[in-house]
């Protein structure tokens, strides 16, 4: 901090001759923003490098053993597996079904346990916000491989109660999901005045269920949708827990199938990545548009006006 006035004094004389030079462009760029060319170069180079593995995956799915010609043969074979070659994709579909069931239960856990607890803390015991945050972020610190060491004995008990069903994994996966579900909901809660709104609704005679259902939840659409989508993405991508608790889920099935038919495994992997990408783009757009959010529209309108005059002066 103390360095700032020092440089100001030292540089003052050189600042003046520096000024006319960029004037013939527009104005000197100030601040951290990169020039258009720098931005384009970085984004294109990094973007291309990151596209290569995905493109390689796609190219791989078009290959077939023996020939150099590319074709969509493997895509067709998903639905008409060659029984004679001993290829059986049923574990993959079974795993996908199991993963979707686990998704449903995990989402239910988040909406019926985490969300009410967060609202409860916010409305009744705000002093425990830090404790709740700590607990919810904790699973990031504990690697899932470490948790698995403890899950194995816990699940021997769980299996004794519920049987060794794939859906029981949802309890373990829910812990892994906790940080991802917590963050968007917490951000959403801090973005609107939950306490005042609920007090106003209460003073107008709403009962708590009515307040939660008709006042609070409509304000939390964005956070809840993000939490749900992130939960779905994380559950579909979960491998560690499923593999150690010997359940067949989408990821374990992918790895299994890749040993007999790596083409189809790659097709499914690529499809899952694209699906998750689309899901998250939808979250992003949903957040940007948000139907009916008046406060949002105001906020969007405000930056739209000043950017135009600013842009003509400097490149911000």
């Amino acid at each position: 901090m103390s360095a700032v006035p020092l440089t100001g004094v030292a540089v003052e004389p050189t600042g003046e001759p520096a000024n006319p030079a960029p004037r013939n462009r527009r104005a000197p760029r100030v601040g951290a923003e990169p020039s258009r060319i720098t931005r384009l170069v970085i984004l294109i180079v990094v973007g291309l490098v990151f596209v290569v593995p995905l493109a390689a995956m796609f190219e791989f799915t078009l290959r077939s053993a023996g020939t150099t010609a590319l074709g969509f043969g493997h895509y067709a074979s998903i639905f008409h597996p060659d029984a004679a070659a001993g290829v059986d994709y049923s574990p993959l579909f079974q795993g996908l079904r199991n993963s979707l069931v686990i998704c449903l239960i995990t989402v239910a856990l988040m909406l019926l346990i985490l969300l009410p607890t967060m609202l409860f803390v916010e409305l009744r015991y705000p002093r425990f916000r830090r404790v709740l945050e700590f607990v919810c972020i904790l699973p990031i610190t504990i690697p899932s491989i470490v948790l698995v060491v403890g899950f194995v004995p816990v699940y021997q008990r769980v299996a004794a109660i519920f049987g060794s069903q794939p859906w029981t994994l949802a309890f373990a996966v829910g812990i892994i999901v906790l940080p991802y579900a917590y963050r968007p909901i917490a951000t959403n809660i801090s973005a609107f005045d939950l306490v005042t709104l609920s007090e106003a609704a209460r003073s107008l005679g709403g009962s708590w269920p009515v307040v939660v259902w008709r006042v609070i939840l409509p304000n939390m659409r964005r956070g809840v949708v993000s939490a749900v989508f992130l939960t779905v993405a994380v559950v579909l991508g979960e491998y560690t827990i499923a593999s150690f608790l010997s359940q067949n889920t989408f990821q374990t099935a992918l790895l299994l199938i890749s040993q007999t038919d790596s083409y189809v495994a790659t097709i499914f992997a690529l499809a899952a990545l694209v699906f998750a990408g689309i899901l998250l783009v939808i979250i992003g757009r949903f957040g940007a548009i948000r139907p009916g959010g008046r406060e949002r529209r105001v906020r969007r309108a405000r930056p739209a006006r000043p950017t135009r005059p600013v842009r003509s002066r400097s490149a911000s």
């Binding site: 593995p53 995905l54 390689a56 995956m57 991802y180 992130l230 993405a233 994380v234 579909l236 991508g237 979960e238 491998y239 990821q251 992918l254 790895l255 890749s258 790596s262 495994a265 790659t266 992997a269 690529l270 899952a272 990545l273 998750a276």
Partner: peptide
């Protein structure tokens, strides 16, 4: 957050 096994295939 989602990669895991699928990134292994990609590489």
């Amino acid at each position: 957050q989602f990669g895991g096994v699928m990134l292994a295939f990609a590489f």
